[in-house]
Structure formats: C-alpha cells, structure tokens
C-alpha cells in the first residue's frame, strides 16, 4: 500500500477543509483499505472522520429515524430504537458481511461508496431517505447516480441519513455465500397509499422497481407480483448469477419481503 498522510478531523469543517482531489475520508476503512492494498485506489491524504462526535448516533423522532454517518453497522443492528421503529433496518445491518466488518463499517461509508451490491442503498431508496451532508440535503432518489457513483461533490461529507418510518417493511437478500454482499436484495416498504420496492445487486446501481411498486400499491399481497416477468436486459451477469437468474431472484425476494411484512 502506497504511503499517505493520515489526519484525524475534529469536526466536519476541518474534514472538508482537508479534502482535496487526492484525498478520501476514512470511516470504517472496510472498503478504502482493501482497495488501497490491492492498488485499485491511491490517495495522498486519508481524513479520518470517526472522531467527529456529531457523526455518530441514532435519533428517533415521531416520523423518522436519523442515523449519523459514522455509526457502525453493529450499532444499527443492536439499537433497540431502530429495532422498534424500523425492524427491517436493524436486520439489514445484522446481515452485512461478518461481525468484524460490522464492528468497523459505517452507514455513511457504505452509501458514499455505492457498491452495486451493497445493502444500505436499498434501505435509502425504500425508506424515502434524505441524505444530510455538510452542505445540503439530498433525496435518496437523487443521490445514487450509477455504479460506485453518487451526487456527492469532492470533499462533501455525509453527516446523517434520515429514514421515514414506514407502516410495514422487510429486506430480503440472496447473499453471496462468501462475502454476504447481495447477489440480489429487495427492500419493500409500505407507506400510506404508496409502496417502494428497492432493488440492489441486480443492476449497476440500486433502483426502485416501478412495475412492482405499482402492482403492490394496488394490492399489497405477494400474489400481485407472482410470476412477474421482469426485463433482464440491464441486469448484471457474472460468475455468481446470470441476468435471467437475477430477474427471477428479484421477484422471489420481493415476494418473500411482502410475505414477511
């Protein structure tokens, strides 16, 4: 791994002042460090944001759950407040990787990285999340732009993610047996008069499946999407699954999610 300068920022202001075109923020490091070790990424400066107090913690208000960007997966999965308000979100966190990944990895790092098979991006889309940065608020639907690409500008720091509490919700994934990343994951959330069906792992970027959302908004039962033949032309094919298999998995996982709601 090439050498770099390590900085620990005290607050968001210092973190964004230190940022440059050759820096990265360091949260859990569970993506950044392996990428640097493999030579896929090099930075001159790593700006550790874990010591910024404001970025950690979970708050539940009447309608929403707000999670600080540097909050670890283990904290979300263990949180009684999250379990009570949005149980599917704590079980999503519990299903990420392994205990050591969950002890370090953060929600902000996960969504900033926007891996096409990461779990949290689907929660953001399904739960009508708002991404709070040090500069602005971004709706989840406008945040995830493409493979490993988000609306974040260089040096823009995610401070918190605010999820809207649904009436019912469930996240179901078909995990890669080695890494636990989603080969396909589907997050279904039901609000008054509206259902979101967020899909991760299937395409180059997380998305809300309009066809299934519409069917489920009309009739919230797995029978209304049973046998749905989704277009697989934009779906991923790799050593783990073909596009056709993924299209079929999306429907299977969505049905499981609806039944589990």
């Amino acid at each position: 791994m090439k050498d770099f300068n390590y900085h620990s920022a005290k607050d968001s202001k210092e973190a964004s002042q230190l940022a440059s075109s050759s820096s990265a923020f360091l949260a859990g490091g569970m993506t950044t460090i392996p990428s640097m070790k493999l030579g896929l990424a090099t930075y001159q400066d790593l700006i550790d944001i874990k010591n910024i107090k404001k970025l950690s913690g979970i708050k539940v208000s009447g309608k929403s759950v707000t999670i600080g960007a540097a909050t670890k997966h283990v904290e979300v999965s263990n949180s009684k407040d999250v379990k009570k308000a949005i149980p599917s979100l704590s079980s999503l966190a519990e299903g990420i990787g392994d205990p050591q990944v969950r002890n370090r990895g953060t929600i902000g790092g996960s969504i900033a990285n926007n891996d096409p098979s990461a779990d949290y991006p689907s929660a953001c889309i399904a739960l009508n999340a708002t991404i709070h940065t040090n500069e602005r608020k971004i709706e989840a639907a406008k945040f995830f732009k493409g493979m490993f690409e988000t609306a974040l500008k260089k040096g823009e720091l995610i401070e918190a993610i605010e999820f809207q509490i649904p009436e019912k919700s469930s996240y179901q994934k078909h995990p890669n047996p080695a890494s636990r990343y989603a080969i396909v994951g589907v997050y279904v959330a039901k609000y008054k008069g509206d259902v979101n069906v967020a899909v991760t792992g299937a395409k180059s970027c997380v998305y809300n499946d309009k066809e299934m959302s519409k069917a489920l908004s009309g009739n919230f039962s797995s029978s209304s999407i049973n046998g749905m033949d989704l277009d697989s032309s934009e779906m991923n094919t790799d050593m783990h699954a073909s596009a056709e298999f993924r299209a079929s998995l999306v429907v299977t996982q969505a049905k499981k999610a609806v039944d589990a709601c």
């Binding site: 390590y6 360091l26 490091g29 460090i33 874990k50």
Partner: peptide, 24 residues
C-alpha cells in the same frame, strides 16, 4: 479482508487487523 486470520481485539471488540491502520 475476507479470511479473518488477522483478527485481534481492540478495546474489547474483534476486528480484522489487516484492515485497520495502526494510526487509526
């Protein structure tokens, strides 16, 4: 960061020491 051969405890919790900076 997949094999876990490097797991140690830091402040009472297990982590993969190959994926943490000493500085951090």
């Amino acid at each position: 960061s997949q094999c876990g051969a490097c797991v140690v405890h830091v402040d009472g919790n297990s982590l993969k020491s190959c994926t943490a900076l000493a500085a951090d």
